[in-house]
């Protein structure tokens, strides 16, 4: 019996690569956690700007708005939603400590309940239980156009001081970013959706793009296991670049490498 027969047909090589990569990630994560290696995470200007954004809002006496994107949990865009939740927990903690008013309208029902719990825990942890307001996080509508309309109005009515947009974004990106600019807010845009990165780059004051948003949780929490996994991801990227170079050379030599990945 061929060892590759244990895998689903057509996915053997890619599955094997995925498993090797996962084990490597876990290994580096554990090594960093047990201080066998000492990995550090580089500065991320966009993430450092979160404190700046909250500070600006506090100085102006205006609210901070956090938008968790359009990526739903349980779909292919869960990564963006998870990254948005990670960032939100830091934003809400900082807002609670600095006494900044926070608004977090969402169109994601599953993310809504998680965000509610994060807000409650953050205010309790900051010793400001009495300041906890369940209407900080509001569910607007799962439909994009209704969400766009409501959030745009909220930005104008509440005269927000800063706007932090994080997660997977789609059609509502430009609308949100432009409306926050029109409201005079300092804006930070972070997304893992390649098609919406140009909009954030064009309109926002600071931009966090691509897989950087998945590293935000590790960067802000300084958790060793999480930093270890980011180190593992970087090694994975180096291996992929080497494989791309080898693949390019083989293809130019006339070797058809595509069937190898369809085994």
């Amino acid at each position: 019996m061929n060892i590759l027969d244990i895998f689903v047909a057509g996915r053997a090589v890619t599955s094997l690569m995925l498993l090797v990569f996962c084990f490597m990630l876990i290994l580096i994560m554990e090594l960093n956690l047990r201080e066998k290696i000492a990995l550090k995470i580089r500065r991320m200007a966009g993430v450092d700007a979160i404190d700046e954004a909250i500070g600006i809002a506090v100085e102006k006496g205006k609210p901070v708005m956090f938008l968790p994107g359009q990526g739903k949990l349980g779909t292919g865009r869960s990564g963006g939603a998870l990254a948005a939740i990670s960032t939100f927990s830091y934003v809400v903690k900082t807002c609670a400590e600095k006494g900044a008013k926070l608004l977090a309208p969402t169109m994601l029902p599953t993310v809504y309940s998680i965000m509610q719990d994060i807000v409650k825990q953050a205010y309790i942890a900051a010793g400001k239980r009495e300041e906890y307001d369940p209407s900080i996080v509001t569910f607007v509508s799962p439909k994009m156009q209704a969400y766009m309309s409501k959030v745009g109005t909220m930005m104008e009515e509440e005269r927000i001081g800063s706007c932090i947009m994080f997660g997977s974004w789609a059609g509502a990106t430009l609308w949100m970013a432009e409306r926050s600019f029109e409201a005079g807010a300092f804006s930070i845009g972070g997304t893992d959706s390649p098609s919406t990165i140009p909009f954030f780059l064009a309109v926002c004051d600071r931009c966090i793009m691509g897989e950087e948003i998945y590293a935000v949780g590790a960067y802000l929490s300084e958790d060793k296991a999480m930093i270890g996994s980011i180190g593992g991801q970087d090694i994975g990227k180096i291996i992929i670049i080497l494989l791309l170079l080898i693949g390019s050379i083989l293809v130019n030599l006339g070797v058809d490498v595509l069937p190898w990945f369809k085994m």
Partner: peptide
């Protein structure tokens, strides 16, 4: 380049979440 980075990043965040290492996702915990 962005897509490859995203793929690697998604695997990373998924492994952390499955193993319970993604701190912010654990509701009610600091």
């Amino acid at each position: 380049g962005i897509m490859i980075g995203l793929g690697v990043g998604i695997i990373g965040i998924s492994v952390r979440t499955i193993l319970g290492r993604e701190k912010a996702y654990q509701m009610g915990e600091e």
